[in-house]
């Protein structure tokens, strides 16, 4: 049981980092990025191609993250412009439709060009015993990446001027504008950051399981579930929800069967919406 829960936490930290990117973009501008998982896979495939071309991991990873960040930046500056001009429901609908399209295009391109490509990152080292369970080093390094990224985000949003400005736009956009903050700049920066975070998740995940070209949709769905359960717009909520869902996921996969795990995760999200519409730590009504 301990082993299952620890595995759940390892998975959960990655889920948390995955959800953060989605939740921030939605909280800021109402755009539900249904290509978030595809961003992660795109980053992973860039890194995998570079590894195939015998670049070292230390070169491939930064290049992969920069590439996916630029893709995010470009999409925000082009496709998302008309979206932000709309208000309310129309903005949400156009945003999610366009991002669904982007996701489909990324999926299609990758499956067409690199159908058998996958990213696995092997970290050599002996398993480390934790609470009597021998944990694989890959999972631990992956969790370390997620934890460091989470802590960095926490510090950024709490203590940096730009981080606080980002939260202010999420809480009250008009109030933020009156303070001299340009919501468009904040949205663009965070959209690109969110894409980089997706790439980071792919790297952490690739240390325990291969990232394959067809894995994008599943990652997007997981990100959506985590973001809903955590509360749209909440960073700490996303991590809390990630860990909770990670443990639920490994426990149900171990005791019930993996085929039903996806249903249990979706049910958790549905129950959250019914009983706590703003999510675990969300503050939006």
């Amino acid at each position: 049981m301990t082993a299952v829960v620890l595995d759940g936490i390892v998975l959960g930290l990655q889920l948390g980092l995955l959800g953060v990117g989605l939740t921030l973009v939605y909280g800021l501008g109402g755009v539900l990025n249904l290509a978030h998982g595809q961003f992660a896979v795109l980053g992973a495939i860039v890194i995998a191609r570079m590894l195939d071309a015998s670049f070292s991991l230390w070169v491939a990873i930064p290049v992969g993250l920069v590439c996916i960040g630029l893709v995010g930046l470009l999409i925000d500056l082009t496709l998302m412009r008309p979206v932000y001009k709309l208000r309310g429901e129309e903005r949400v609908l156009l945003g999610l439709l366009l991002m669904l399209g982007v996701g489909t295009i990324i999926d299609g391109l990758l499956e067409w060009r690199y159908p058998i490509e996958a990213l696995s990152i092997r970290i050599s080292g002996d398993p480390v015993p934790i609470l009597g369970v021998s944990m694989r080093i890959g999972g631990l390094v992956g969790s370390g990446i997620a934890l460091v990224a989470g802590a960095a985000l926490f510090v950024f949003f709490r203590f940096s001027t730009f981080g606080r400005a980002t939260r202010s736009v999420i809480q009250d956009e008009e109030g933020a504008r009156l303070c001299g903050i340009n919501p468009a700049t904040v949205r663009t920066t965070i959209f690109a950051l969110s894409a980089v975070l997706a790439g980071l998740v792919a790297i952490a995940r690739a240390m325990t399981a291969p990232i394959v070209v067809t894995g994008g949709v599943r990652l997007t769905i997981l990100a959506l579930i985590v973001a809903v359960v955590g509360g749209l717009g909440s960073v700490s909520g996303a991590f809390l929800a990630g860990i909770l869902l990670g443990v639920v996921s490994t426990v149900s996969a171990f005791y019930i069967g993996s085929y039903i795990t996806s249903i249990i995760l979706l049910a958790t999200a549905a129950i959250t919406i019914v009983f706590r519409p703003s999510g675990l730590l969300g503050h939006r009504p």
Binding site: R167, Q171, D172, E174, G175, A176, R177, N182
Partner: peptide, 30 residues
């Protein structure tokens, strides 16, 4: 609105538009 705020006009709307889950100090520093 953000450029006008930076130019030196501070507007206090009737609905106030504060940042509800931020501290008083964080609101002021923004």
């Amino acid at each position: 609105a953000h450029s006008i705020a930076r130019a030196g006009i501070a507007f206090v709307p009737a609905e106030r538009h504060l940042f509800p889950t931020m501290s008083v100090r964080d609101n002021l520093s923004l």
